[in-house]
Write a protein that binds this DNA or RNA. Structure first.
Lengths: 166, 166
DNA sequence: ACGTCACTTGACACGGTGTCAACTTGACAC
DNA sequence: GTGTCAAGTTGACACCGTGTCAAGTGACGT
């Protein structure tokens, strides 16, 4: 909090006049990042895709490319999640929205009768949601040194192969 | 630390006579869990597998079923990783060993000429390593309510489909 | 001139990690 | 018996970060 305050150029206490606690500040920051980065515009290709496969690819591309944008605030929130209850529920709310995106892609696949017979819709949604976790992006792009483009490519490809039979 | 001490029945300070700090205690605990659970025995099927595919399945089964065993201490270490440097390197060391296991499975696939043409060995290793992350197990088995067996099944299946062409 | 609003300084409680000093207790050697 | 050693005890303290509180300041509109 003091780091942020001094960066902003106000006192630590002034920060508490605006945000009741660290978790709320982080949540507000993440919502701000969403607004600044036109989250809705990014999702247009995913929503307007005609086939299930296109929708899956578009969703992975949209969300995959959004991760680096929110990564800073996301990982701060993620780190608090284990100890702070408020951070935990805030993060869960945000991630539930991501799950919705995954569910929509899976539903599109199912409508096209392309969804693998080996998983239920819920399972496929859970799996895709997990694959696209921020921590996984972190591991591949930060620790393993993958480029952002390669990350998106591989995620698209492996998701398609895992979720579509044949 | 006080929680642990009182659970053990000694004073908090006595804990510091045995372990210099929290990170070291957690690392020692994880090594102890390894020893108690005959980690090597669990890996025999993986090492003696004859085909690449068998090796992949055996590795995923062995490690996947080991995650719940170390989950407690692992997630404690994981939580410290972001702030504590000692915990960070300790955890990285442990995870590098896991990566070795993934690399061995990928190599076995490559030897059988079964590894997908769309990823390098390193990429495939990174991908599998990431898929099998503790946090992913946590999400699927704890948050999403998957059973342990189903988790292993789905991981085996999706890994095989992503990593093997055709 | 007055109130109000945003902000300041400075203090403090609380919880957790890690450190330190001084004391006790039991086992063993001689 | 006495000395010694290891392992543990109590009790205190420093440091850091979050969150709270009180009192003061300075600019602004009316």
């Amino acid at each position: 909090m003091s780091d942020i305050a001094s960066k902003v150029g106000i006192s630590r206490q002034a920060l508490y006049l605006h945000f009741p606690n660290r978790a709320d500040l982080l949540v507000a920051a993440s919502r701000h990042v969403d607004a600044e980065n036109e989250i809705d515009r990014r999702l247009v290709p995913s929503r307007t895709a005609t086939t299930g496969r296109e929708r899956l690819d578009a969703w992975i591309e949209a969300f995959g490319n959004y991760i680096p944008v929110i990564h800073g605030v996301a990982s701060a929130l993620l780190a608090m999640k284990d100890t702070d209850k408020a951070a935990m529920t805030a993060w869960n709310d945000r991630m539930l929205a991501v799950r919705e995106g995954c569910a929509a892609a899976i539903d599109a696949l199912a409508t096209d009768e392309e969804l693998t017979a080996s998983m239920t819709r819920d399972e496929a949604t859970d799996w895709l949601w997990t694959l696209l976790a921020v921590r996984n992006w972190e591991q591949l792009c930060r620790e393993c040194g993958w480029s952002q483009d390669r990350y998106v490519e591989v995620m698209q490809q492996t998701a398609a192969r895992a979720l579509i039979d044949g």
